[in-house]
């Protein structure tokens, strides 16, 4: 029930932000922000209850891990709220959190029954950092989209609803920059932990698993996005926005493809 309540609150917050967009960003912004914050709080309670009930963190299995990802996305949005207008990135992040949570509910938020040999503190850190890294990627991607839309509004000299609703270019650029760096660093740490565990406990330097390939692919994509910003010439901010938006799309598409092609019960996220 609490999971469903969190889902409803994410949807409500999105609708409130959407109505703010239709009103050209002039309506009160605190209501959608507070609704999203309450949604996150309810979601924390729901996953805490899961942990207490089943004696494990919601990191294994499709339902629990997607719900955790939705929660972290909500937390990422809460962090963006600190940048005042930056919180309007919720117009992208809230549908994402809603979709993840809805998929998790459809898949069932219950223990998968799979007992992976990669467990304990190693696994919690690896999975937690990985999911947080993906949230950084989402934040950067969402900020990138908003940057590109606002850039177009400014270049085409329109002062319509989007222009008024969307945050300043500098704000979304800062958000995208922070998100991509955070995503890259956390993904790097997550992959490094997984690799150290494999070397230490499996005695091999690599494993041919879907999640490992997806993790490596995501890391390379994020690295490319960061490098793209540093390339000389033209607008670094705009290039970064394009790169972050593409990075998010590629990583999400990569996940869906690998998920669809994974063997049943392979335990892929």
């Amino acid at each position: 029930m609490t999971h469903f309540l969190a889902l409803v609150l994410y949807l409500a917050a999105f609708l409130l932000w959407f109505s703010a967009l239709l009103a050209g960003g002039r309506s009160r912004q605190s209501l959608p922000a507070w609704t999203a914050a309450v949604g996150v709080a309810v979601h924390v309670a729901a996953l805490a209850r899961f942990t207490i009930t089943y004696g494990e963190l919601p990191l294994v299995g499709l339902g629990p891990s997607l719900s955790m990802l939705a929660l972290l996305t909500g937390i990422g949005l809460a962090a963006a709220l600190a940048l005042r207008e930056g919180g309007r990135v919720g117009i992208v992040l809230l549908p994402l959190a809603f979709t993840l949570q809805a998929t998790a509910l459809l898949a069932g938020i219950r223990p998968s029954g799979v007992a992976p040999d990669f467990r304990g503190g190693w696994f919690i850190l690896h999975a937690g950092l990985g999911l947080a890294g993906i949230v950084g990627v989402s934040l950067a991607g969402a900020a990138g989209w908003l940057y590109l839309v606002q850039f177009r509004e400014l270049k085409e000299k329109r002062m319509g609803r989007l222009f008024h609703f969307l945050p300043p270019l500098a704000t979304v650029d800062r958000l995208g920059y922070a998100g991509s760096r955070m995503g890259f660093v956390l993904l790097t740490l997550s992959l490094a932990l997984g690799w150290v565990w494999t070397v230490r406990f499996r005695g091999t330097f690599g494993q041919d698993t879907a999640q490992m390939w997806w993790g490596l692919f995501s890391w390379l994509v994020m690295l490319s996005a960061i490098v793209a910003r540093g390339l000389g010439g033209g607008s670094a901010e705009r290039r970064s926005a394009v790169a972050n938006s593409l990075a998010f799309l590629l990583i999400a598409a990569g996940y869906v493809l690998l998920r669809l092609s994974a063997r049943p019960g392979a335990g892929f996220l």
Binding site: G24, H164, P168, L169
Partner: peptide
């Protein structure tokens, strides 16, 4: 109502544009 929305002088348009580009 949205009667007071938007900017209606050259100075206020310039400020709005600057704010939407630079933020602070």
């Amino acid at each position: 109502t949205s009667l007071g929305e938007g900017t209606v002088s050259v100075a206020s348009v310039a400020v709005e544009l600057a704010r939407k580009i630079f933020g602070d």
